[in-house]
């Protein structure tokens, strides 16, 4: 089973994300800010990270930079999931090593589409029209 670390300071968002990710077959670990997420990553790297941008203590952008410098830190697929939905933020995130980017609000279809995009899940069977 693939693992996904959900990093968001909102417990509501973490709960929604957990439900979606579990439905997609992931085991889920949660962190409420970048610092806690980094702590978890130094112990064990997940396959995927769903990452909020604005959080107290350490924000998502800062976390991503530090993650990528960890031994093996280039491994996890990082998908931003944030209300920062302008081109500048998206470009910065991609330059810092994000693999995909979700603009909130999100739903299961968007998460599934983006996780497919980076190869974390297989394409769902062809939908009927």
């Amino acid at each position: 089973m693939k693992s996904c670390l959900v990093v968001d300071d909102s417990s509501v968002v973490r709960k929604i994300a957990r439900r979606i990710l579990e439905e997609l077959g992931f085991s889920v670990v949660e962190a409420e800010d970048g610092e806690r997420a980094l702590e978890l990553c130094t112990k064990s790297l997940p396959d995927a990270i769903l990452l909020d941008w604005n959080m107290p203590v350490m924000d998502g952008y800062d976390f991503l930079g530090r993650l990528r410098r960890l031994p093996g830190g280039e491994g996890p697929k990082v998908v931003f999931c944030t209300t920062e939905n302008d081109i500048d933020h998206i470009s910065r995130a991609l330059n810092a090593g994000a693999n995909e980017y979700i603009m909130k609000p999100f739903d299961k279809e968007i998460v599934a589409a983006k996780f497919q995009e980076v190869g974390l899940i297989q394409a769902l069977s062809a939908e009927s029209a």
Partner: peptide
């Protein structure tokens, strides 16, 4: 734009 479109192509 979030269904099927890779973020790189959006940008």
């Amino acid at each position: 734009v979030q269904r099927g479109l890779p973020i790189q192509l959006l940008v």
